[in-house]
């Protein structure tokens, strides 16, 4: 049963693609011929045959470079790039899985096991570092507040009680906004979330 949304005729689509391919091919060779001919036309009678050959070769390469530049940006190339990458990724994934299985059959430790351990450790380290950094920031804040209070007490000979100063944020290690928690770079967490 034909799909209502897809109203393109597969035969005309194939014809269109074929014609486009033909056009590209024809354009490539026309370009080559044009550049080679212009290289030949600029040939000086005093030039030796190797020099003339070099000139024509250079014209050929120029045309080929331009053609590749277009091709490497074309949807056809991008499609094949995606397919090649998907194939390579799948192959590698299966290889990892099978090698891991072999290790496990021999009651050994596979790379995946070590990776999982590394992820757990990295996650633990990240949490510890974050906690220490937060504690450091709080201590810095408290120190600043304490300094303000000390100053207030020292200069508070006046009759009225010294106003309690609003604490300034302590000197931070970095001066930027905090990233939202979901963007924390815990590789283990990220990997698991995707699975």
């Amino acid at each position: 049963m034909p799909d209502d949304d897809d109203d393109t005729d597969p035969i005309s689509e194939a014809t269109r693609r074929f014609t486009e391919g033909q056009e590209h091919f024809a354009r490539l060779w026309t370009d080559f011929a044009g550049k080679m001919a212009s290289a030949g036309a600029s040939f000086s009678p005093n030039a030796t045959p190797p020099d003339a050959a070099r000139g024509m070769r250079s014209a050929f390469f120029d045309a080929l470079t331009g053609y590749f530049e277009q091709y490497l940006r074309s949807p056809e190339f991008l499609d094949s790039w995606k397919q090649v990458m998907a194939g390579a990724i799948e192959f590698r994934r299966q290889l990892n899985e099978n090698l891991g299985r072999v290790h496990h059959e021999f009651q050994g430790t596979s790379r995946q096991d070590i990776d999982q351990l590394m992820i757990a450790l990295t996650h633990l380290e990240r949490r510890l570092v974050d906690t220490i950094e937060r504690a450091e920031e709080r201590i810095d804040g408290l120190s600043a507040r304490l300094q303000l209070l000390e100053k207030a007490v020292a200069g508070g000979a006046s009759s009225s009680p010294a106003p309690i100063a609003k604490p300034k944020p302590g000197p931070k290690k970095t001066t930027e906004k905090k990233a939202p928690a979901k963007k924390k770079s815990a590789p283990g967490k990220r990997s698991r979330a995707r699975k």
Binding site: L72, R73, L78, W81, K82, M85, A86, I89, E90, R92, R93, N96, D115, S191, R194
Partner: peptide, 22 residues
């Protein structure tokens, strides 16, 4: 640049790539 084009989200699944290759 070609790198920009090839690594576009539509053309390259970086998560799957890193998960598979390390």
């Amino acid at each position: 640049g070609l790198l920009n084009l090839w690594s576009d989200e539509e053309n390259f699944d970086v998560d799957a790539f890193v998960d598979a290759f390390g």
